[in-house]
Design a protein around this nucleic acid. Structure first.
Lengths: 156, 156
DNA sequence: TGCTAGTCTGCGCATTATGCCTACTTTTGA
DNA sequence: TCAAAAGTAGGCATAATGCGCAGACTAGCA
């Protein structure tokens, strides 16, 4: 049973505040015993609460300052192979199949405008792709965050 | 100058393989000295290559199995305040201002279909929002990954 | 009421990592 | 070619880790 309680939330929130802090530090900060925190962490890990480290890497700092979301309209039958075709493009960082009209939302990073144009071309060239619609991410209106969701669990 | 070389890439790739491995372990795995890895890590951190820990948390495991992308069309003048209005909705996990026609792309998580409907309503109720268009993420065609980009840096 | 299972606690122990230091060598680039 | 930057090697005190174990405290259940 993947139960998730307030203590787990507090541990995650502590990690968000400082991801490099040690288990002992968290234990005393949270008023828990070291063993508890350690056991909880192990449990969280086993329940796959932690995603790949990739997620924590800033693409801008890697030399890819531009992020774009590309809507891709495809012929439904070709969806499977399209997955591998898209995965072959390094700049494709993430792709979701969407409900609604049979299409995809592809997250792409690039070094600049021309580069983005080139990547878009690579996507268009994939078997099964009918058309694409590129939207450049201009700003982060709400930067990725889970703290509000976690704080909601605190009283449990 | 935010230079990023092959060694940095190797360090990040090692972290992606096992994010909990120690500095000494990485050093011997990569054939570098402990000091080098430590210095590199510090430099990466200073250059803000690492994002918040939030990014590594699996929302599904937290009890929010659904992810949706909501396109939000807004009156441009109201963009600023809309940022704070959206930030007040816990299920809004991320929001980008976009170029092109759809003004905002909002990433939302929810506990289920009804919940998603409710969240969409909250977004619609925000001052300045004209209409929204919800797409449910059905599958991860390409799960988030940066390894191809990093491997590209290896030979440098 | 008493049993059981699960969790949290507190403690100890050996091993290992960390942070910081100095000195020396290699690489880099102006 | 020379100077600056980066890497290597080693040491050292402190601290964290992984592990085990016994006891306390709940909660569910017959």
């Amino acid at each position: 049973m993947p139960t998730f309680d307030g203590t787990d939330a507090r541990i995650l929130l502590a990690l968000i505040k400082d991801s490099r802090q040690t288990v002992v530090a968290m234990a005393e900060r949270l008023g828990l015993s070291r063993n508890t925190v350690q056991a909880r962490m192990a449990a969280l890990e086993k329940r796959e609460v932690f995603l790949n480290f990739d997620h924590r890497v800033n693409t801008a700092a890697l030399g890819y300052p531009l992020t774009a979301f590309i809507s891709v309209h495809v012929q439904q039958q070709k969806l499977q192979q399209l997955g591998t075709a898209l995965a072959a493009i390094p700049e494709v960082v993430e792709a979701h199949g969407l409900s609604g009209r049979a299409d995809l939302l592809v997250r792409v990073v690039s070094k600049g405008a021309e580069d983005l144009f080139r990547v878009n071309g690579k996507i268009l060239a994939c078997e099964g792709v009918e058309r694409t619609e590129t939207s450049l991410a201009m700003n982060e209106l709400v930067p990725f965050r889970l703290t509000p969701l976690l704080e909601r669990e605190l009283d449990k």
